[in-house]
């Protein structure tokens, strides 16, 4: 375990009856970093998080937060936004937030003051006494996010945080996450939004069928999935070639992965020779989206 590990998972295995969901999974999340936990549906991400938080008892392995198995008494250090969202729908917004604040160790008055301030910030100051089931889905998501971060936790675990958010609220949510990151919080983010991962995450892990397929910094993972890629903007589709593989191609935007030893300049020359007008040509590393598609297959990702 690295000395600065806040989350440590080692040889984790999870069986449900005869079904093995996670096999020998090991990784660390360092204090202060933003960690992307990636995987297709059913790959075992939520199971891992539930086991980390003591909701599931692991079949084997060690899962610790700050050096010890998570206990609810550590709740003051944790903010958890589960994939399955929900609050006490028949209770007023403020009462629910204060309840969770108290469970997380805040005093009633502090929880109340924090909640009112948060509701003001996210544009819901008039919803404090309204029952949660009278709020729209997006408004309920905001309240849930508030409940998650209300104790200024050192560790934020966000399982599909943008699920159900419209673009405006998604931007607001991500700004709050960035704020927490700036404040020094460690963030574990389960998401399918590769833009967010590339923008926010320091390191990532890719899980498939309960097994880690890639783990490291974003750059390390990109490098591990092949050498150079080129993003091309052209007037028509890029034809197949033995010198590269077409990773993605839509409406004149393509990403190709070069074969070993092939230089980008040679490809550009080939395209010009073939009479294909090229308006953009950017060598770089394989995008996370391409890697994701490569690992899980286009059908599975859809």
């Amino acid at each position: 375990m690295a000395s600065d590990s806040l989350v440590h998972i080692e040889n984790f295995r999870m069986d449900f009856g005869p079904l093995t969901v996670i096999r020998d999974l090991s990784f660390d999340v360092h204090a202060g970093e933003t960690f992307g936990f990636l995987g297709s549906n059913g790959s075992g991400k939520t199971t891992t998080i539930r086991a980390l938080l003591g909701i599931y008892i692991p079949t084997a392995g060690t899962l610790t937060i700050n050096g010890r198995q998570f206990q609810p008494s550590q709740t003051g250090e944790l903010g958890y936004l589960p994939e399955e969202r929900g609050l006490y729908k028949k209770e007023p917004t403020l009462d629910t937030m204060v309840y969770f604040g108290k469970l997380k160790g805040m005093s009633a008055s502090a929880a109340r003051a924090w909640s009112l301030n948060y509701l003001e910030r996210v544009g819901l100051p008039d919803k404090a006494k309204i029952r949660l089931d009278k709020l729209s889905g997006g408004e309920q998501q905001k309240v849930q996010l508030g409940v998650t971060i209300m104790n200024d936790p050192r560790l934020l675990i966000l399982d599909e945080p943008t699920k159900g958010f419209d673009p405006v609220n998604r931007r607001m949510l991500m700004s709050i996450v960035e704020e927490r990151k700036q404040a020094g919080a460690t963030i574990v983010m389960v998401t399918h939004q590769m833009e967010d991962v590339e923008r926010l995450c320091d390191r990532i892990i890719l899980l498939k069928d309960g097994v880690a397929r890639a783990y490291g910094t974003v750059t390390q993972v990109q490098e591990s999935f092949g050498g150079t890629t080129v993003r091309i903007e052209s007037e028509r589709d890029i034809p197949p070639s033995s010198k590269y593989a077409v990773l993605t191609q839509t409406h004149g935007h393509a990403e190709i992965s070069l074969a070993t030893g092939v230089e980008p300049a040679a490809i550009l020359q080939d395209l010009v020779t073939q009479g294909i007008g090229v308006s953009g040509f950017t060598p770089g590393r394989k995008s996370l989206e391409s890697i994701f598609v490569e690992v899980y297959g286009a059908k599975e990702v859809d």
Partner: peptide, 16 residues
């Protein structure tokens, strides 16, 4: 109620 409202996971991280 916790189950139907999907509150359980959040609750179980605050109390046993």
């Amino acid at each position: 109620e916790e189950k139907e409202n999907r509150v359980t996971e959040m609750i179980l991280t605050t109390i046993s």
